[in-house]
Design a protein around this nucleic acid. Structure first.
Lengths: 227, 227
DNA sequence: CGGATGCTTCGATTAGGATCGAAGTATGAA
DNA sequence: TTCATACTTCGATCCTAATCGAAGCATCCG
């Protein structure tokens, strides 16, 4: 009688406030240590450790040992996409955990969505790429056109490396603030990395917000014009 | 410090097995009574009533009184989309609640996703519409082209009525079995209704599976050819 | 008006799990 | 080796929330 996947397990993992805080922190894209995550969730290290074990068992997280630190991160793009979709619904219901403060506009303008750019800027970037026929949409699969490939390589992104991986190069991710799609996948990640490497944008400490420098703003507008 | 929407509340609502079973049952698209939902979840009526109140308070469900019955249904398309995205992740992790049985292939072939067609057939339908340039994708917004509008009206769907409503006519919904998008929105709903009204397809009892008749198979293949 | 059905509210019980103190393991530094 | 840091495991406590019996409303039917 029961059919379909088991959503209760996933839901219960996300449903605990401490774990939800950890996951939200990890949506910032940085891998974090158990101690940092415990601080984010406002709990002791012991409790955090037990939560992290559960999240890992559920497939939401992976850990990487590095010296005596253990870095935790979301296990795959899918997890970020799923969380973003839940955030979208929660936001539409007005379920925010903070009184809308000064940080809120910054988040809506540009923020990290796990490993790629989201918010107004993220949406504008994908729109621009599609309008310029550098990315094509069929079904729901985004595909980089030849023009797009050339463009990406001109920006200094190693397209061959992207192609080698089994990860999708382009995929859509629903933006909770804009209610539209932005670009995820390995190309989305590479582009954000590029912006940061070039000094056009900076991640804010302890926040998902991304701050563009003046040069960055200008470069972004030139690269991704709005038609 | 805490920023972004509160996903814990939504997660905890979905995280209870009884509630998850109810939500899954409602993904079948039919509005169900409290008694029916209690049976689906395997709990008493009292318990079900308390769960339903919580789901309604959380904005996931709406109820409609009809005589002495109360019919519950998912409150909006967004809820279905979110649940489908969680199912997608759960399925990719192999978290299914049943041993893959004879029903499984039927579900993958064609099923109801809240109010529209999903599974292989759902994906094929959207692909075909896009290939025939009757639906266009920009950003993530699907838009019905003039050709598409004519086509829809030729099928006997009241396009004007769709347009009047504030609901999006076309939107994408990620398919958990196919990992691709299919057509949701009011047009997606109208098309599924059409198939059923014409006798081309039937909803199975107590299942999300949709069974196409022989005539239906033929008509579907003609209407939505694969290029 | 009964009497039946569908559902909600109340109250008491119970179980699961979140929490943290304390102790244990692993890695690095001095 | 010794100490410190980073984290896990164990054990006990405590609290929330799921559960159901019983009683209370609401609606329909005859």
């Amino acid at each position: 009688m029961k059919e379909g996947p088991d959503i209760a397990l996933i839901g219960s993992l996300i449903g605990d406030p401490a774990r939800a805080n950890m996951l939200t922190a990890l949506m910032g894209g940085r891998a974090l240590t158990a101690t940092e995550l415990a601080a984010h969730a406002g709990i002791t290290l012991q409790t955090a450790s037990s939560h992290l074990a559960k999240l890992e068992a559920g497939g939401l997280l992976t850990q990487r040992k590095q010296g005596r630190h253990r870095y935790f991160a979301l296990s795959e793009d899918e997890v970020g996409l799923m969380l973003e979709s839940i955030m979208g619904f929660a936001a539409s219901r007005g379920l925010t955990r903070h009184r809308p403060g000064p940080k809120d506009p910054a988040l809506r303008k540009a923020r990290v969505c796990y490993n790629h750019l989201a918010g107004d800027y993220g949406v504008r970037m994908l729109d621009s790429l599609v309008a310029a026929r550098q990315i094509e949409m069929t079904g729901d699969d985004l595909t980089l056109t030849d023009a797009g490939q050339a463009r990406v390589e001109a920006l200094g992104i190693d397209y061959a490396a992207l192609k080698k991986s089994r990860r999708p190069i382009c995929r859509t991710c629903l933006d909770w603030s804009e209610r539209r799609s932005h670009l995820a996948g390995s190309l989305g990640e590479a582009l954000l990395t590029l912006f940061i490497d070039k000094g056009w944008a900076k991640r804010e400490q302890n926040s998902r917000a991304i701050r563009f420098t003046d040069t960055g703003e200008k470069a972004f507008s030139e690269l991704f014009p709005q038609y």
